[in-house]
């Protein structure tokens, strides 16, 4: 697996959003804004849809599981790169976290309709490249690339 790094080359446009933990009222707003921007650019509808799913799931993960973090989108001539970084708590077993249906979400969160254990698997499914790194007590970083072709 590739290492997580931010590729600053050829960035045509940057979008950056702060996501707060437990902010369920606003959960989905950042990804919805991202989707609106992408829809106005000359980008294929299926690419937009994949990027929308990737950013939405990432945003929800930040709200449910993290201590807060950032969601960044780099729009490039040939792809969309999505960077998700949080400040903890970190994932102990990434392989388990990537398993469909596995979730550490609380009962309360599940009752709100979140935490079905499909977030990370969906993010991986819709992206062409997917990198995840995590350290318990430090935080988690995810990089996703959605290519135009």
């Amino acid at each position: 697996m590739d290492k997580y790094f931010k590729d600053e080359r050829d960035v045509a446009m940057r979008l950056k959003y702060q996501i707060l933990r437990d902010d369920f009222t606003r959960a989905g707003e950042a990804s919805s804004k991202i989707k609106k921007v992408l829809k106005q650019l000359a980008i294929d509808a299926t690419v937009i849809r994949r990027a929308a799913i990737a950013t939405y799931e990432a945003e929800i993960n930040l709200v449910i599981h993290s201590e807060g973090g950032t969601l960044e989108v780099y729009i490039k001539p040939d792809c969309i790169e999505i960077y998700v970084e949080d400040v903890g708590p970190g994932i102990a077993d990434i392989e388990l976290a990537m398993t469909k249906g596995f979730s550490t979400a609380s009962v309360a969160v599940r009752e709100m309709g979140f935490g079905a254990g499909m977030g990370l698997p969906n993010m991986e499914k819709v992206s062409d490249d997917f990198v995840i790194e995590s350290e318990v007590g430090v935080g988690t970083k995810v990089k996703m690339i959605v290519r135009y072709t």
């Binding site: 106005q40 650019l41 000359a42 509808a45």
Partner: peptide, 20 residues
């Protein structure tokens, strides 16, 4: 067919410029 009338331009570069 799709009618993507919300697109700022059909050209990727121009659309980005307009967005900026």
């Amino acid at each position: 067919e799709a009618l993507p009338i919300f697109k700022l331009d059909t050209d990727f570069r121009k659309a980005l410029e307009k967005m900026a």
